[in-house]
């Protein structure tokens, strides 16, 4: 089992969706990087993912990893946000028939996983349909 540190250092992204924008070419990154793969720039300004996006693709996971079998089946998707940033997350509170490319989603804070019965609880973002 990994230590809390591995979870903890991702908190700015997991909780607050902090992203980065290359100051020379404007390319955005989530999660932030040290080098821009567009122009090689190394300076970034902090940005934040907007809380509304659209599904670019999706699936319904029927056979889940062992620690998530109790949640299966669950939907997962890649959503595109302002500026073209794409993010992968579960789609919660969705009727599977509703899923379609282009579906508007927003971000909600959810419990993503837990490290066994006694380990830390791991939170983060999920998508939910905009109703």
């Amino acid at each position: 089992m990994s230590t809390s540190a591995r979870y903890w250092r991702e908190i700015p992204q997991r909780y607050r969706l902090e992203a980065a924008k290359c100051t020379s070419c404007g390319k955005q990154f989530f999660p932030p990087r040290l080098v821009c793969n567009g122009c090689g720039g190394r300076e970034f300004e902090a940005t934040k993912l907007s809380d509304k996006g659209k599904l670019a693709t999706y699936t319904v996971i029927r056979i889940a990893p062992s620690d998530l079998t109790q949640q299966a089946p669950y939907a997962i998707g890649i959503a595109e946000f302002d500026g073209g940033l794409r993010v992968t997350a579960q789609v919660a509170d969705v009727d599977f028939d509703e899923l379609k490319v282009g579906m508007p989603v927003r971000i909600e804070f959810r419990r993503i996983r837990e490290e066994g019965e006694a380990g830390i609880l791991c939170y983060g973002y999920k998508f939910v349909p905009v109703r």
Partner: peptide
């Protein structure tokens, strides 16, 4: 951290493709 953490499996990734 940004795919597997969220419960993605390999069949799931290819399913999204």
């Amino acid at each position: 951290e940004y795919e597997v953490y969220h419960g993605v499996t390999f069949p799931g990734l290819y399913a999204m493709m």
